[in-house]
């Protein structure tokens, strides 16, 4: 693995081996629960989880990280412990996503660091080792092999990621630093998530109990009562899944989902909670928009888009039962 200094681990704390890191620094987990000087770090760790659960990105204060007591590295590591102890998967998901976004910002900055070439080199190395993506730096930006690009881009819905909408020269796709990092967002999220999930769960640590309980409480807030989805077409199931994971569903997808459910007779109140995991959830706006669609507050009632339309938005994942229908609403209806 890449050789990391303290500065780097502050930015990418998920690269550190938690247990080893702590013991190398001469700390044990138990100390954090009891030592009054270290308690603040547990508090910070808890805050870090709360911030993430709200879809915000935890702001770094680099000056707080002296090498003897790198607060932010510790707060990350302790946050992971708290999450493991709570066993709340929704929180782990949210935390990984937020930490991924945070790391994304640093990666992007490091890629573009023209003063310090070692920073660029290191971020390129991280991309290579974590995602086996070979990125080259050019005068104007970055390039990546077409095949590597496609591996990631086919998971995106937005048309700007289609290969046709990229500059492609001599087997390579040209990207900005932002796009380069954006390309591995999902994988970065998944990387952090699996790393947390696969780390071993410690026994309860004295002094951590209240935090863990609070987290369990908090997690309840995010539980989604999934609408019965058995007879739903794959496009709708997929949209619900994306939202449940707290990932971003493009506007077209939300429109499809909302109009579909409204047409199936669900109420605005039943549907709104589905959107609450979306990174940009705002309950008032959501209710307002849903009301618009349903025709309660406005005048028009919107129809569910046709399969063709859904397909053109890359939101269609047809199964054999889709063969004979032209609108998702017809899915599962028996022909007479």
């Amino acid at each position: 693995m890449v050789n990391l200094g303290n500065d780097e681990i502050v930015k990418y704390p998920f690269l550190a081996e938690a247990g080893k890191y702590l013991s190398d620094k001469g700390f044990s987990l138990e100390q954090f629960g009891t030592d009054p000087d270290l308690k603040k770090i547990v508090e910070n760790a808890f805050e870090r989880i709360i911030t993430a659960s709200e879809g915000r990105i935890f702001k770094s204060d680099f000056s707080s990280n002296n090498s003897a007591l790198p607060l932010e590295i510790f707060s990350f590591l302790i946050a992971v412990i708290l999450l493991k102890l709570s066993g709340m998967n929704t929180l782990i998901r949210r935390f990984s996503l937020a930490e991924a976004r945070r790391a994304e910002k640093f990666l992007e900055k490091d890629l573009m660091n023209y003063q310090d070439a070692t920073k660029t080199k290191l971020s390129l190395q991280i991309l290579e080792e974590l995602f086996s993506m070979t990125v080259e730096k050019t005068d104007k930006g970055f390039t990546i092999l077409v095949r590597d690009y496609l591996k990631h881009s086919i998971n995106f819905y937005e048309r700007e990621w289609k290969l046709i909408n990229r500059k492609v020269v001599n087997g390579k796709v040209h990207l900005t630093s932002h796009e380069t990092v954006r390309l591995v967002r999902k994988e970065l999220d998944r990387h952090i998530y699996t790393k947390i999930n696969s780390s071993s769960s410690p026994d309860m640590i004295i002094g951590f109990e209240t935090y863990v309980d609070k987290l369990k409480q908090l997690a309840k807030k995010f539980e989604v009562k999934t609408v019965e989805s058995k007879e739903f077409p794959p496009c709708i199931k997929h949209a619900i899944e994306v939202l449940e994971k707290g990932e971003n569903l493009p506007h077209s997808g939300r429109f499809m989902l909302a109009t579909f459910l409204l047409n199936k007779g669900q109420t605005v109140e039943q549907i709104a909670p589905l959107f609450k995991n979306a990174p940009d959830y705002n309950p008032k706006v959501t209710i307002y928009q849903l009301n618009q669609l349903s025709g309660v507050s406005g005048t028009t009632e919107y129809k569910c888009p046709s399969c063709e339309k859904v397909k053109s938005q890359n939101l269609c994942f047809p199964v054999p039962a889709c063969d004979t229908i032209i609108n998702p609403l017809q899915f599962g209806r028996k022909r007479v």
Partner: peptide, 26 residues
């Protein structure tokens, strides 16, 4: 290097060659 590329990726390559799905921003 495209030998082990899957079907979805090949569809993207086909779209590229056919000039399908381009947007003005590009």
């Amino acid at each position: 290097e495209y030998d082990d590329v899957g079907s979805k990726e090949r569809a993207e390559i086909a779209d590229y060659i056919m000039f399908r799905g381009s947007i003005p921003e590009t």
